[in-house]
Write a protein that binds this DNA or RNA. Sequence first.
RNA 1: GACUCGAUAGCUCAGCCGGUAGAGCAUAACACUUUUAAUGUUAGGGUCCUGGGUUCGAAUCCCAGUCGGGUCACCA
Length: 575
Amino acid sequence: MRKILSMQELSEQEIVRREALQKLIDFGIDPYPAAEFPVNILANEVKEKFAAGEELKEVVLAGRMMSSRVMGKASFAELQDASGRIQVYIARDEICPSEDKTLYNEVFKKLLDRGDFIGVKGYVFKTQVGETSIHVEELTLLAKSLKPLPVVKTDAEGVVHDAVHDAEFRYRQRYVDLVVNPGTKEVFMKRTKLYSVFRDYFNEHDILEVETPILQAIPGGAAARPFITHHNALDMPLYMRIANELYLKRLIVGGFDGVYEFAKDFRNEGMDRTHNPEFTVMEIYVAYKDYNWMMDFTEKLLEKACIALNGTTEIEYGQHKVSFKAPFPRVPMLDAIKQHTGVDISGMDEDALRKVCNDLGIPVEESMGKGKLIDELFGEKCEGHYIQPTFITDYPVEMSPLTKKHRSKEGLVERFELMICGKEIANAYSELNDPIEQRVRFEEQMRLADKGDDEAMMIDQDFLRALEYGMPPTSGMGIGMDRLAMMLTNQHSIQDILFFPQMRPEKKAEKKVELNETEKLIFGILSKNSPMDLNDLKTQSGLSGKQWDKGIKGLASAGLTKVTKTDVGLTVEAV
RNA sequence: GACUCGAUAGCUCAGCCGGUAGAGCAUAACACUUUUAAUGUUAGGGUCCUGGGUUCGAAUCCCAGUCGGGUCACCA
């Protein structure tokens, strides 16, 4: 027989459940059976099919028991499976046809708890109150739950009571959040749906899903601080990828016409409502296309995704109403700046730009080149205005080292970013495929780095070698999946669309094993003269009120003393 | 990184001017043998985040720390 260990440290309810577990075992019931439980329907399917008039004579469901209302010889309980909840009706004489009523009276009524996984077999009927329910003929315990779930109740008006709101609780124990807050599950199911809409769309276009290295010797393709790790056998540092762009382009060189990857990227930077150290970017590269084609492709993709998730192209994000109806407006960056600042910066040199920034009160640094200055200008004065999905096009060459020069506009590149609710959601180029030009751009980045720009890119010689073999004209695009998921599910923190957002580790208060000085002092006096009056002991110890209090409580919790109340007062004795 | 708010029973939260902690739900027992946030009665349940200080006395006031949230800055 199994021994249940160490009941100290457990809450009353946890102890009760462990005792129930032992009793179940004593009844010969395996609380964690191994056998397959042959479910043949989900809760929501039962409701749908029954509502459609289908007769359901033998359904088998499994899930967590989320509540139970025991009413003598019959009980109602709620079963929650992956699809939702359904009421089950359990009659004593139904599940216990013989004289032995143990299964109902003892097992169901006393030993099963909220949160336990159970399986039921029975038929579907409608109760007096009109609730579709399962009339249970067989009841099976599938897994015992030892920790009580938070109690969240919904009343007749649909008002939710005592929902678990505490962010820390929800993020650290997402499994509980998912069980108890139905909205959470919905958000994550939408997120998954988003991925499958993307995959379907790309696969329809014969674009190949691929995987590229996460551990990279040179972290390329973006400007960001990487995580560094170490490979023991090779005895060399490796970086966690900050982007997968350069690898996907190598595959285009290799002859694939289109590739995409949902890439976990890692950036060793600050964390806030829109930044988690690991996050997902979908990058896609398609040969023989340009950034105009990619805009068409992107707006259709996002419209499709929005409809798939929300059933409409019109959604709300916070106080904003956002329309994902394609096509989206396309605004050249310099036009955007002109529109929102009144200044036409086309053709300006670095000094003139710096003056414009100063005049507009935008703080600039000496290390900022022309591209960076324009970026600041746009970021400070324009970005926030683009609530509706808008393609901002044609960026300065200095801030786009991997992008092809614009076919007609001097000093610019063929690049767009998609802005929604003032945030960058997608970033795309006509990819630079001239290897000599690419080398020059990397060298410019090196000069920026020397000037103090810590975001400048490192040179990837192998990538240049690949380009020298020839890469077809290609358009590439990256979408921040987390931020897009936030918008399409109306969530305002990245933590709410990641199952397990990064958190500092929980610190458990250390379990005290040894007595501290105060406790030793008190125990020393007591052990010479036990039992003794509590107040005498306190006086003799000469401790301050707080020290005394801590000491005596510490001793009691260590099980070394016992306080008894008499008519005279409190007496302490050493145990 | 700066500022700010929070941490009390399994959960949601009260706790006043400093006097050793309360409610609802949950749990346990009993009743009722009935459906629906079932009901009634009773009971049990606490390292008041941690450490220090002030005080005769601290959940409460002060200081430091831990963890979390928000705002801003930085960063895409």
